[in-house]
Design a protein around this nucleic acid. Sequence first.
DNA 1: CGTCGCTTTGATCTAAATCAAGTTGAGTGG
DNA 2: CCACTCAACTTGATTTAGATCAAAGCGACG
Lengths: 228, 228
Amino acid sequence: MLTQSLNTSVTGNKVAPVAYSPDQFCVLTGHAGLVASEFSYRKDEEIYGEDEPSEYVYQVIRGAVRTYKLLSDGRRQIGAFHLLGDVFGLESGATHRLAAEAIIDTTVRLVKRRSLEQAAGSDIQVARKLWTMTAGELRHAEDHMLLLGRKNAMERVANFLLEMDRRLAVAGMMALPMSRRDIGDYLGLTLETVSRALSQLHSEGVLGFSGARQIVLRNRQRLRSMDA
Amino acid sequence: MLTQSLNTSVTGNKVAPVAYSPDQFCVLTGHAGLVASEFSYRKDEEIYGEDEPSEYVYQVIRGAVRTYKLLSDGRRQIGAFHLLGDVFGLESGATHRLAAEAIIDTTVRLVKRRSLEQAAGSDIQVARKLWTMTAGELRHAEDHMLLLGRKNAMERVANFLLEMDRRLAVAGMMALPMSRRDIGDYLGLTLETVSRALSQLHSEGVLGFSGARQIVLRNRQRLRSMDA
DNA sequence: CGTCGCTTTGATCTAAATCAAGTTGAGTGG
DNA sequence: CCACTCAACTTGATTTAGATCAAAGCGACG
């Protein structure tokens, strides 16, 4: 499926000379012999499925991505949101442990996992970077386990807002790419509970809206005190 | 604190020639130049604290360990139980992200983190192993996020029983080292809810008790069907 | 064989889920 | 440019799974 799509919209082996500021990928893509391609996905399109062989490692160039697990009855747990510059899909084993979908129209840069492993075999800096990136994901997962296992709804939503503020706020405002349902599936809540928590924070003046997905935080300190 | 204790009960640099069957550590401790020591902790003794510098990597030789995070009001989320042979405390960064305590009287083998990093710098097999072990922890954390965010109490307890059965059952029976409270803090439940779920499984004949912590699974297939 | 911590069980409460309308607003086509 | 449409969001009413509060069992250990 991916290979099929590659024929239609990949930009080819030539990597555009674009600079990504705090680039988690540059140690990898900048490595001699590594070839990076670009690829685009429409809103809600699958990038890879759970348990699918992990052929590529990805970096978000435009848009946003959710990675998630599903239960057979449709319950979904989103493990992480991947925003501009983030690397995702990196696996030590042979398969992807979570599925990945574009939240909105998204462009990714991708490199072959095999070539990355090969580079790691000869360059200890690359090997170290692979470990560090996986350890970073583990850190996030450990924090998220505490949230999912022990925090109440308001604490979860406050935590989410602070995380998104840190990761995608521009000029004090954030444009959320994801729906209330996505947020709920990330926080282990229903979309209604997320909506009620946001409404309460709005009525308390902690945040302002310009449209449901444009949020400005007016009292970060208050939010921090709410995050457990 | 660790160095102080080392004076009293470390066995010294000589590593006993004991074989640990599926030894996750041997690629590391078997490496030339790596020095392994042993150390013991009493029940409920702290091995390291959250955010403490990560000086050592540990392997359980005897006993069992819990790693956890605390909120300021005492709510606790146990991230993992570490049983015989398991490695824990491995960090890519400078500090431990979770605290570690002995669940029962426990002996660990330990190697200096620095020496491990050094070995990884010259031996690509060691570097690869560090990455693989961290990726294994990440995999567990991702599965556990799904459990904590989206599974109900019975699904969580069924999952726990199957995990412990796989990891510590001997002759079809498991001797749990941890309390109902520990299980609850691992599963994001109260100890009462854990107890009720176990009682129900007992009354349904899915499991048998010989004392609260000696459990024999009588219908694994049924449990698997309950685990979502 | 008594004590104390752990576990079980019961009664009640509550935070969040579920069910159910409305409301809003972004995108579409007239 | 405006009206229409439909999915996303908000808000309200009700239910419920699991938490909390409370009181016995039990069993390991001194």
